[in-house]
């Protein structure tokens, strides 16, 4: 599993590839939190197009970041989830909290 974190416009974009489980969630969480602070951003985009597997540990990172930025008036967007990942997102209830798009391209069109 690997990930990249970069600033694009007023959004922090986290692109994740591979399998997301408890073995990686601590470093993912710390790196996102550090980048949010360093860039002073409150809006977060998770590009999930490369994610092949996620369990509740991975969802916990997304939910935790949602709680953090939502408390400051920010938003979290999810993009590109494959069907098996989307099923887990649906079951978890996360899609009731944040907007989900089929791709980052579709999301950027919406964000303008």
């Amino acid at each position: 599993m690997n990930y990249t974190i970069k600033k694009e416009k007023d959004y922090l974009v986290v692109s994740i590839s591979g399998e997301v489980d408890i073995s990686i969630t601590d470093s993912l969480r710390e790196d996102i939190d550090r980048a949010l602070q360093d860039y002073g951003l409150n809006n977060l985009i998770f590009d999930l197009s490369g994610v092949e597997f996620v369990d509740s540990a991975g969802l916990g990172v997304i939910l935790g970041r949602y709680k953090k930025v939502a408390a400051r008036g920010g938003k979290v967007y999810l993009a590109g989830a494959r069907p098996q990942v989307k099923k887990i997102l649906e079951l978890s209830g996360l899609l009731g909290l944040m907007d989900e798009y089929p791709s980052t391209g579709a999301l950027w069109e919406k964000l303008g």
Partner: peptide, 8 residues
Amino acid sequence: DPERMGLG
């Protein structure tokens, strides 16, 4: 743990 979802 508040960072975990309790969904396991």
